[in-house]
Simulated scan of single mutants.
Amino acid sequence: MNLINLSVAARRLGFDACGVAPVDVLTGEKEALLRWIEKGFHAGMGYMARNVEKRENPALLVEGARSVIVTLTNYYTPRQQEKSVPVVARYAYGKDYHIVLKERLFRLLAFLKEMSGRDVRGRCFVDSAPVFEHEWARRAGLGWIGRNTLLVNPRLGSYCFIGVIISDLEFSSYSQPEERDFCGTCRRCVEACPTGALSPHEVNANLCISYNTIEQKGEIPLAVKEKMGQRFFGCDACQEACPWNGKAVLHHVGEFQPNEWLMRMNREDWLELDEATFETRFKDSPLSRPGLEQIKRNLSQPPLL
């Protein structure tokens, strides 16, 4: 398989960048993950401690795996919600990225099968399986892993979704991995984290606003609640502070256009919302993951500033 043909096809399907890395066993990344789990930094995300061997070795996910194809999809928009309304992270402005990216990845995999002339064995992944997405993106030459643990692309910044195809295809050449770290001595992301959840290249999910507003099933700890401000779904503080995101440009994905209800609903609007209206307004939205009851929990008290 030719890397150039892959890149051209990926761009035609709407991906902003694409690279490919040869399959390898990620022992170093597995050991770092286990140290993170041992500290309890995964909080209530028990799934992070499962299938560790599959994260380490892609061949356990796809038999005979030879390549890891990685795509980036920009989701940045300079548009922000109206003032004084509850704040969501930018990635949740539009349609759920899992749905959008999976459809595109399936089409890219179909292209690979057509070009190779054989029944390619492959699987598509979008942030919902035991895959070290950020490390594979780095190995596919798409950027480096910043101090906030997110992938930073020199052209797009960090407001990008990562899509992965693990396949048994072998390529005639592979992307050059990004061995450099262009964060330098910058610590703006670490210093910008409202709750102190960030240390260089590590996140303590117990303190992370994103974890607590989306995945935390119990009550949000007071120490986090006090620092949330207007946020009720996710947090972009570390990305907003990153100098590389000063280069971010408007995305070109129609499905990611902001939901107009989301952009203007105030706290009272949310608390008065019923399930039927929520389903109508936010069907296929990332907000459907925690659901309306949990959203109301996040908004149950006036924000502490």
Rank of each mutant, 00 (worst) to 15 (best):
E260M: 11
P258N: 10
A248G: 09
G117N: 08
I145D: 08
Y76A: 09
Q176A: 12
W36L: 07
Q176T: 15
S67W: 09
C242R: 04
C208V: 09
K217Y: 08
V23G: 03
R297Q: 13
I166N: 02
E215G: 02
R79A: 15
A110E: 12
P22M: 10
P286V: 02
E268M: 05
A21P: 09
K296Y: 07
E275N: 10
T27G: 11
N206I: 08
G229S: 04
Q230C: 04
H42C: 11
I214P: 03
A9V: 01
Q81L: 08
E170H: 06
G14N: 05
E202P: 01
L105Q: 00
F132P: 05
L169I: 14
L287D: 10
I165N: 01
T71K: 00
M115I: 13
E260A: 06
N153C: 07
A276W: 06
P303Q: 09
M115H: 14
D274C: 05
A241M: 02
F132A: 12
S167N: 09
S288W: 07
A21T: 10
L273P: 01
R50D: 14
L304V: 13
E202Y: 08
K54E: 15
D269Y: 03
E38L: 08
M45H: 09
P78R: 15
S67Q: 07
L150E: 11
V249T: 12
F161R: 00
V203T: 15
E29H: 13
L142S: 05
Q230F: 14
L222A: 14
I145Q: 11
G196T: 12
Q294Y: 05
P130G: 03
A17W: 02
A192I: 06
P177I: 13
R138N: 08
A65N: 06
A276M: 10
P221R: 03
D284N: 13
G234Y: 07
A9W: 01
I69D: 01
K30H: 01
I214H: 03
R138A: 06
I145M: 08
L250Q: 15
G157Q: 11
E293G: 06
R35K: 15
F282M: 07
S300C: 10
R281C: 03
T149V: 15
A276Q: 11
E219S: 14
G44E: 15
P221N: 08
C235P: 09
E31M: 14
R231F: 13
Q239K: 14
K39F: 06
N51V: 02
W136D: 06
L61R: 11
I220T: 12
P194C: 05
L292I: 00
P154R: 15
E53S: 12
T195F: 08
V88K: 07
K225Y: 15
I165E: 00
L6S: 05
